[in-house]
C-alpha cells in the first residue's frame, strides 16, 4: 500500500471515514443523553438554570436583530412592490418571509453563535480541567448532571426565541411600513391576516425551529464533550460548533422546506 495511487485514495477516504465515525459517535451520544433525560428533567431546576443561560440571555440579541431584520425587509420590499402598485401587500411579504423562513433560520443561527458556543466552551473546559472525571469518581453521571440539562435547555429555548424573533420582525415591518412609509394600517394587518395561514405557515415555522433547536443543542453538547482536553482543543471545538451548526441549520432548512411547502 505504498504506491502513490493508493496513498492518494487513502487521503481521500480518511476524511470521509472520520466524518462518518464522528456522526456515529454523535448519534450514540444523543441516545445516551435521551436515556438519562427523564432523571435529568425530574430535577427541573438544573434545566431552568440552562434555560436562563441559553434563552433569557439571548433575548436581547434576538429581539434587536428581529426588529432590524423586519425593518430592512419592509424597506426593501416596499421599493420593489411599489413598482407594481402592490405596496399594500407589504405586510404579507414581511410576515410570510419572517414566519416561514427568517424567524426560525436567523433565530437558530444567532442562537448557535450566542448560546451554542458558550455551551461547548463550558463543557469542553469542564472536561479539560477534569471536572467531568471528578464527577464520575463521585458516582455522579456527568451526562445526566451537566449535558442533559444543557441539551434540553437549548431545545426548550429555541422555539420561543424564534417566535420572539418573528413577532419583533413583524412589529419592525409595521413600524417602517405604516409609521415611516405611510401605508394604511388596516390593509397592512388585514391582508397579512388573510394571506398567512395558521397551520401551513405558523405551525410549520414552529416545527422548523424545534428541529433546529434539537440540532444546535446536540452539536453544541457533543462538540464540548468530544473536545480534546486542551486549551487549543476547546477553542477548536467552539469554532466547529458554530460552523457545523450553521451548515446543519441551512441544510435542514432546505429539506424541511421541500417537505412542507412542496409536499414531496
Amino acid at each position: 500500500m505504498t504506491n502513490p495511487l493508493s496513498r492518494a485514495l487513502q487521503s481521500l477516504g480518511a476524511p470521509v471515514t472520520n466524518a462518518l465515525i464522528k456522526l456515529g459517535f454523535a448519534c450514540r451520544f444523543l441516545v445516551s443523553v435521551l436515556k438519562v433525560s427523564p432523571f435529568a428533567l425530574c430535577r427541573f431546576s438544573l434545566t431552568m438554570r440552562e434555560i436562563w443561560f441559553a434563552g433569557v440571555l439571548s433575548v436581547l440579541i434576538i429581539v434587536v436583530s428581529g426588529l432590524f431584520v423586519g425593518m430592512v425587509l419592509a424597506l426593501q420590499g416596499y421599493e420593489t412592490l411599489v413598482r407594481f402598485g402592490a405596496s399594500s401587500s407589504l405586510g404579507v411579504l414581511v410576515a410570510l418571509s419572517l414566519v416561514r423562513e427568517l424567524g426560525p433560520v436567523i433565530g437558530a443561527l444567532l442562537f448557535a453563535s450566542r448560546a451554542g458556543s458558550a455551551i461547548t466552551a463550558e463543557i469542553g473546559l469542564m472536561k479539560a480541567t477534569e471536572q467531568l472525571s471528578a464527577m464520575e469518581m463521585m458516582a455522579v453521571n456527568p451526562v445526566a448532571r451537566v449535558v442533559a440539562p444543557k441539551f434540553w435547555g437549548g431545545v426548550i429555548s429555541m422555539p420561543l426565541l424564534a417566535a420572539l424573533f418573528s413577532a419583533m420582525g413583524i412589529f419592525g415591518g409595521y413600524l417602517v411600513g405604516v409609521q415611516l412609509l405611510g401605508l394604511d394600517a388596516g390593509s397592512f394587518w388585514s391582508q397579512m391576516q388573510s394571506a398567512v395561514d395558521f397551520r401551513l405557515d405558523v405551525v410549520n415555522g414552529v416545527i422548523k425551529s424545534v428541529c433546529f433547536g434539537f440540532a444546535v443543542s446536540l452539536i453544541a453538547v457533543f462538540e464540548g464533550y468530544d473536545a480534546p482536553p486542551t486549551a487549543e482543543g476547546v477553542s477548536g471545538a467552539t469554532t466547529r460548533t458554530v460552523v457545523t451548526s450553521a451548515l446543519v441549520i441551512l441544510g435542514l432548512d432546505v429539506l424541511l422546506t421541500a417537505f412542507m411547502f412542496r409536499g414531496i
Binding site: 431552568m48 438554570r49 434555560i51 436562563w52 434563552g55 433569557v56 433575548v59 410576515a95 414566519v99 429555548s157 422555539p159 420561543l160 426565541l161 417566535a163 420572539l164 418573528s166 413577532a167 419583533m168 413583524i170 394587518w189 397579512m192 391576516q193 388573510s194 398567512v196 395561514d197 395558521f198 397551520r199 405557515d201 405558523v202 415555522g205 414552529v206
Partner: peptide, 28 residues
C-alpha cells in the same frame, strides 16, 4: 433565575399567540 425564566417563557408564548391571532388566520 426562576423569575426571569418564567418571564422569558411567558414572552415566548405571548409572541406565539401574537403570530396565531394577529398575524395568521384559520383559513380552513
Amino acid at each position: 433565575i426562576d423569575f426571569w425564566v418564567g418571564l422569558f417563557i411567558a414572552l415566548g408564548i405571548v409572541a406565539l399567540l401574537f403570530l396565531a391571532l394577529k398575524v395568521s388566520s384559520q383559513s380552513s
